[in-house]
Nucleic acid binder design. Structure first.
Lengths: 222, 222
DNA sequence: CGAACTCTTGAGTGGGATCAAATGACGTGG
DNA sequence: CCACGTCATTTGATCCCACTCAAGAGTTCG
């Protein structure tokens, strides 16, 4: 995403941090003062209601940039899901780098449009799909993003051996619920139902194997 | 949004159209061949499931630009909600204009980030709010966007006399349901409940008056 | 070993969906 | 002008999916 020169400029003004699961990466205070370059790990971006209900609006896996130097204010929480390595970049510094580099701004623009498209897909899921459809949709999404490292070792191209389709879920059942607008009990029950129907299999609670991708796609409702 | 010169450039390569409510503005065929400048009226952008379920992901009121010359492919439907006046702009033409104008691309970038923020707010609504909270949230949103023309005549600034708060809803009950992930019966019932509780009043089915903005905000759940 | 999590599973409830009917507004054509 | 069809809306009755409450097992960690 960045050239060596750009990376150097950014690193020069940033602070590197290692964070554990659950750590809030941006407090409400510094949210508009810095962006975060995600070097390793997975983070969740959530919107909150005052009574504690929350909705995960986006999952980000390294390498990626969280926040935008131009993003409008918004009440979001950013927390590590796994162990993670990050750079905290002062917003003004990032802004000036981006404003000096047309191509870089164009790339950020494209990424914002992709994020928007992803958010719209999730809107369809939350607004119109059943619990079973949401879980199936989620599994297909995760299968495209978190293929297990065991099989398809070091195969960087996305088109690895897809039949074994083993996925390492980075989220707890409760987090999956917060992502899909469900309770963790419903998530657990729908996983059990898909397993009983032979669409998936679990080696343990966090490792799923997709047994029948075609039927899983049907179960996802499109 | 655009300078006179930019508008002229765009108009030169565009075709103007008047469309009636319900008209599809972009078929699946030309969706990636053109963008739409909305001059008058309101349109809805929806995502569809094969069995007919749909989710409105965004409402756009004139003046605005629909689609982006850089947007990734996505299965969306764009339909007029009210009578509308539009320019259809060939995508390559718009793309070249934007690529020649840094400031213009920056503005499109900012708009994409605002759209993303709006989409995230809707995600919270669809994922975590009750029917009553969704309707209250929707009314507050509409009150900020579609203040009735009767009061506050020709007052372009958004800060008009807000107490009378009369709103002209551009959507049918079914469309409101497609926006909020509810059925039209539930929309109708929740409107009735808010009316019974004295938070709002109807002069007719499409014209709402906000009687108690404070309690409506509480009802919106934040 | 106990505390704190995570996950599963069961039982019962309730909010919103579904099915159904009636009303009113509107335009169209006889 | 009225009869008619269409569409938007409201309201009632019933159903069911997902939520809630609860219990227990498996884990990790101090």
């Amino acid at each position: 995403m960045l050239t060596a020169e750009e990376s150097r400029q950014i690193a020069a003004v940033s602070t590197r941090r290692h964070v554990s699961p659950g750590t809030e990466l941006m407090s409400a205070l510094n949210l508009h003062e810095s962006c975060v370059a995600l070097l390793r790990g997975v983070v969740k971006i959530s919107r909150l209601l005052t009574d504690g209900r929350q909705q995960i609006v986006s999952l980000k896996a390294a390498p990626d940039l969280l926040g935008s130097p131009f993003a409008p204010p918004g009440e979001v929480s950013v927390r590590a899901v796994t162990e993670a390595e990050i750079y905290c970049v002062p917003r003004p510094a990032l802004e000036s780098i981006v404003l000096q580099n047309r191509v870089l701004e164009h790339r950020l623009h494209l990424r914002a449009l992709e994020d928007l498209s992803e958010a719209e897909a999730l809107l369809l899921t939350l607004g119109r799909k059943t619990a079973r459809e949401r879980i199936a949709t989620f599994l297909l999404d995760m299968a495209g993003r978190f293929r297990s490292a065991e099989l398809g070792k070091r195969c960087d191209c996305g088109l690895a051996i897809s039949e074994p389709g083993v996925v390492d879920l980075p989220l707890t059942r409760a987090e999956i619920g917060d992502f899909l607008g469900l309770t963790f009990e419903t998530v657990s029950r729908q996983f059990a139902a898909l397993r009983k129907d032979g669409l998936i299999e679990f080696t343990d609670a966090r490792r799923v194997s997709v047994k029948d991708r075609t039927r899983l796609r049907v179960a996802a409702g499109c």
